[in-house]
Design a binder for these strands. Structure first.
Lengths: 122, 122
DNA sequence: ATCGCGTGTATATCGTGTATGCACAATATA
DNA sequence: TATATTGTGCATACACGATATACACGCGAT
């Protein structure tokens, strides 16, 4: 459970958890078949409510990244490397489309966007 | 008032109005000193409540893009071209920092981000 | 079998923020 | 000064995030 929660972020807590676990799964840091910690333990560890953890878990299940077995636990879905990259790009491109719309509304072209990106990407 | 409101967007309505007017001001499409439509007229035009328009106007004033005179109206702040670009970049970079954090959480490097950007930037 | 422990699940509640309508104050103008 | 036009303030309805508590399911020991 290598999760960092920001209380100052505008993103909901469950969304932060969802995104970070998603990224870890799709980077291969969490192996398929392996189990996530019980929601109670995760709740204590992350200093949030059980329900908040559950909500994140639900999003993960809806995205097909984990599956839940009542009374037993939650487990990482086995995914082929290709499928992982596919899902990763899917998630990124979906967000990127929103981001680009914002940049474009200010009249920025691709070149300007890339230039600004380079200036702050470390 | 060339504003498009999306009811499906996750962004609040007042935020959408704020962003689009900001972009128009900083692109020079709305001249300094010129007045915005009265909030009532804008509300009718945009099919939203007066209070929603007011909230957007308040954000614009807080950003220094317009100023309000009670009983008279709201007017675009006069800005030099340099100051406009400065404010524009300020708004974009602030958002871009959030966007990048998301891309980076998936392990993407600058090159990959640029590549994906190019693939969907039209 | 069944009891107990660990697992996820469902219900009720509170706080915050978005969006709204209606009544009020300030300004301009005739 | 009367009246229309402008922005402002307050009280409310609703949706969503976050929470605690009580419930249901599954497995292993007795």
């Amino acid at each position: 459970m290598n999760i960092r929660i920001s209380n100052t972020s505008e993103k909901p807590i469950y969304q932060q958890i969802f995104e970070q676990i998603s990224a870890q799964v799709l980077k291969g840091e969490l192996e398929g078949g392996y189990s996530l910690p019980p929601i109670r333990q995760a709740a204590v560890e992350l200093q949030v409510s059980i329900i908040t953890v559950k909500k994140a878990w639900e999003e993960l299940e809806r995205s097909g990244l984990i599956y839940t077995v009542t009374g037993k636990g939650c487990f990482i879905t086995e995914l082929s490397p290709d499928r992982m990259i596919e899902k990763r790009n899917e998630m990124i491109l979906k967000q990127m489309a929103v981001d680009i719309e914002y940049y474009r509304s200010f009249g920025l072209g691709l070149d300007e966007v890339v230039e600004l990106l380079k200036s702050i990407y470390e």
